[in-house]
Nucleic acid binder design. Sequence first.
DNA 1: TCCCGCATGTAACGGGTTACATGATTGC
DNA 2: GCAATCATGTAACCCGTTACATGCGGGA
Lengths: 174, 174
Amino acid sequence: MGILLRQPRTGYDVVKDLQSFRPANASQIYPILAKLEQHGYATFEIQAQTARPDKKLFKLTESGKAALARWLDTDPEPPVTRDDFLSMLFSAWSKGPDAIARLLWHRKRFLNRYEQDLRAKYQALVTNFPADCDDPHNARFSSTLLYRRRIGLVAEELRWCEESITTLEKVSDI
Amino acid sequence: MGILLRQPRTGYDVVKDLQSFRPANASQIYPILAKLEQHGYATFEIQAQTARPDKKLFKLTESGKAALARWLDTDPEPPVTRDDFLSMLFSAWSKGPDAIARLLWHRKRFLNRYEQDLRAKYQALVTNFPADCDDPHNARFSSTLLYRRRIGLVAEELRWCEESITTLEKVSDI
DNA sequence: TCCCGCATGTAACGGGTTACATGATTGC
DNA sequence: GCAATCATGTAACCCGTTACATGCGGGA
């Protein structure tokens, strides 16, 4: 399952870490961690805290690391996306060019915000840990690759949005 | 739900049409069509066929069209993707640069095939119906926008794959 | 001969989301 | 005073997938 125990983390932390590229919510993660523990793939230490529920700090066992390594050798499934925007665009012609333009503008705003966010995080990563990011044996190397990918894709979709808006303008007011 | 009744279609056709941008399978579509019919959003005519089960040709009612128009006025949810490849890449550092390269090559091959397929379909569309594709009141206009988007994104990810492979080579054999 | 395409569905299962339950601390 | 952050979980539900059931015609 969503195995991302680079470092020991609590369930709560795992949810946050996954957020960026494989969203899942708490009520899903906790049962999974419990199951991993039952199968011997992970163990946890309890850290008592005052004024908060006790933390369960999970970490992978050797057997868990082996299972992850095996999974890495399998071929990944083709990606699946669901995106209401695309479905709407598919039917938007029925309401005319204005509706299409509205959708595109909406998407553009969304992408702009998203891009800024990504760039900020990426910048923070490479300025704080420049050495790690260049070392392919380091976890942060993987992270930089993933950031660069997302940034490139978002920039491309943004380009597409603008292109589409201009063609729409050209076509509809001639 | 997946409302894409541009023209009257059978359940079987709907599944195929959706394939490209919002995959769903037959056992999901049939109950949905039945529900649409119960709610008065769609009706069907039965076309008897010899040697095959009778066709149920569904089409949207006025009330169905109105519902679709209302949906088009709502703001789309942010997109969700799940992609094993990304999860694997995230952990691939643990197995070293070769594992990362292997993943990237695998993805590259996948994207190459996908890109060819998309370009072929896009070409077919614009050569067969050049006028429709330029008319924003026509359904095929929406389709061309969607194709251009997908093609751009796939090309960008391909570029990223190649870039990543070369940085990996540079970094690991110096 | 066997698989693919056409054409419809039902039943069981599994993964994911939403809602609920608890509770102290910190900042607006 | 209210929301957000930290921290754990359970229960119900929905959406989607897999497997099953049926059956003929055409191409490899």
